[in-house]
């Protein structure tokens, strides 16, 4: 191998920065992380390829995600779910999401949804658990209130699924290990 130092391509830089945000968002639930761009597709590009399945409620986005090589799947079989949580009917459908099994709790879904984070209006949440120093409050808009009770029902830790909320270029992660109190 050559002795010159390797430098990243623009693509490397972008997907590394995106993963940084994804990682810290999950490691610090409720703490807003900056993304290099305001775009759901960016998240897919840093994580997905032909080894993954996904579901997208938006056909246009779905086609773009399919270009990563990931396979479209039904909601109840998808590992990566791109949807909007604003509509109560969309939310109800999420009760069938992959939640893993006791041998492999990681065989579970991850949701990506747009949301309004700490904006005008929404549901006030109090997060605690791993990654949270004590507790942290957050106001989430554009997510139907029923989502939070559905999540509480769905999670039988360590079984469950993880959620990312995206507001332009700001990202918040909520892993299954987070306890949420709706205030």
């Amino acid at each position: 191998m050559t002795h010159a130092l390797l430098l990243p391509t623009a693509e490397d830089t972008r997907s590394n920065a995106t993963f940084d945000a994804l990682m810290w968002a999950l490691a610090r639930p409720g703490v807003i992380q900056p993304l290099p761009d305001a775009c759901l597709l960016l998240l897919a590009e840093s994580l997905l390829d032909r080894e993954c399945t996904f579901f997208s409620s938006d056909d246009g986005l779905g086609r773009q995600i399919a270009a990563t090589g990931a396979y479209p799947a039904m909601l109840d079989e998808a590992e990566y779910v791109f949807t909007s949580l604003a509509d109560g009917r969309n939310v109800a459908a999420l009760s069938t999401l992959l939640a893993g099994n006791l041998l492999y709790p990681d065989a579970s879904a991850t949701i990506f949804s747009p949301a309004m984070i700490d904006g005008a209006g929404g549901t006030r949440l109090r997060l605690s658990g791993p990654g949270v120093n004590g507790s942290i409050d957050l106001v989430i808009g554009d997510v139907d209130r029923s989502f939070w009770s559905l999540r509480a029902e769905a999670i039988r830790y360590p079984l469950g699924w993880d959620v990312y909320l995206l507001d332009c270029d700001r990202l918040v992660g909520i892993p299954r290990s987070t306890f949420i109190e709706v205030l």
Binding site: L22, A27, L47, D49, P158, P175, R176, S177
Partner: peptide, 23 residues
């Protein structure tokens, strides 16, 4: 590749690291 691992290896690592943090 940058960081030695090719992109598909890195994406797999990323997916696994996220699950490890979540549980």
């Amino acid at each position: 590749s940058y960081g030695f691992l090719d992109e598909s290896a890195k994406r797999e690592m990323r997916r696994r690291i996220l699950k490890a943090i979540a549980i």
